[in-house]
Amino acid sequence: MSTSFSPGTTPPADIRAEMLLGARSLATPAPPSEKRGITSDLSVDEALLLHAAGWEPLDLVCGVAVVSVPVGVWNWGRGAISLASDAHDQAVDQAAAQLRGECSKVHGHGVVGVRVEVSVRTHHVDVELVGTAVRPISGKDARGNDAAQAMPFVSDLSARDFTLLQRAGWMPVGLAFGASFVYAPRRTAGTAMKQTRQNVELTNYTEAMYSARESAMEKMQRSALHAGGQGVVEVKVTEGPMSFARHAVGFTAWGTAVRLVAEAHQFVQPQVVLPLDDAVVTFEAESLRGSESKGRRR
């Protein structure tokens, strides 16, 4: 996260007064409080943005699941390794359910900024989800529902992206996951010999890998549709051979499923900024000091 200012705007002089005010608040011991402290992994910027959009953080919430992979699934075989992708699906579902459970317990409407860690090992798939439970400050959501939703949303979008999306009339509904694992195909020795000097597409290889990738994406789409999503943004795709079984290749895809909750997409005039420095800025956030420009660069 970073900060920027526009040349020509001067910060208000009262920032020192605010600092002093803050320091004075610590000069006397705090009265004993029965309040349940708020914990969140949001930065100050994100907390402020969330607040501007009418939401507040409640608590840091987690979901973890460890699911066993039956013995021998990584051995030589043909085609898709469905037991491994079943284990993956079960682990992400269970972890998301835990996360939602913790969110509901603190009366949250959803979880933002979820950090997703999926690791596939020889005998088990471990999934960890950590994020901040949030709710509208008024206690009511966009449709005026009072209570925490029965199905809190889960999203790996940052608080900034969450507010941005909301402003355009969209809401996250859940994380969509898909995975597929496949054994690398083989060529017969004879075919391999014949092809040594040729430029030629290995169609059965192409087909196997292409299908596996499509199948991971399709599962992700199905899970998005199941969650009631109309689209998936920020799809991440990981792929590669498994470190413990090199002849097996794993593909995973996940992203945040989103849904249009407004009547129509709300257009938001983009802001064009021209940085005067060479620093690569990864995140911009609003400051309280007037209307400085913000940007995000990838």
Partner: peptide
Amino acid sequence: TLRGNRVRRFKDFDPVELPRPTVRLV
């Protein structure tokens, strides 16, 4: 291990501007 900044609210939030999609011309 869990760590973070313990902070005390000494005044209410001032409203901030909502974010807009941004384009960087670099």
